[in-house]
């Protein structure tokens, strides 16, 4: 007999093989990937391939831009400019709104203060005005 009865039962248990397989995979995967992600050589390779990818993207973008311009169609840059312009207008409106609020506050503060009593010179001036009238 190749297996003892207990071993055979364990082997036949549903999921036992799957469990063992994944546990071993997990240990190996975590260990190796963890090491790789800290390895300066690997990071340099990733960086260089990312650089190549970004260069290709730039070229593809330039090509599609030139194509759209020839077709007399708005490019993404054109759309962005419009959106950025709208954003600037909105910001200006909100800046103005803040200024108006500040002015309203100042007016409210002034209203709260008691009205200054008429000074002697201004009463005299009022008296003169009455006489002249």
């Amino acid at each position: 007999m190749f297996f003892e009865p207990d071993q055979f039962r364990k082997f036949m248990e549903p999921g036992a093989f799957q469990k063992q397989f994944f546990e071993q995979m997990e240990t190996m995967f975590v260990e190796k990937l963890g090491e790789m992600l800290r390895d300066p050589d690997f990071l340099e390779k990733i960086s260089s391939s990312m650089g190549t990818g970004l260069d290709s993207k730039k070229k593809a973008d330039a090509m599609s831009k030139a194509y759209l311009e020839k077709m007399n169609m708005p490019t993404r840059d054109d759309m962005s400019k419009v959106l950025q312009y709208l954003q600037q207008i909105e910001a200006k409106i909100l800046d103005l709104e803040e200024k108006i609020e500040d002015l309203q506050d100042e007016v409210a503060e002034l209203k709260k203060k008691p009205a200054p009593k008429a000074s002697a010179s201004s009463s005299a001036a009022k008296g003169r005005a009455k006489k002249d009238g």
Partner: peptide, 22 residues
């Protein structure tokens, strides 16, 4: 790890921003 991955030697921020745009 994020510090290691964004190190200026391997992470060219100018190139990334220039390529992606907005």
């Amino acid at each position: 790890l994020l510090s290691l991955w964004t190190d200026s030697k391997t992470f060219d921020i100018d190139k990334i921003v220039e390529s992606y745009g907005n």
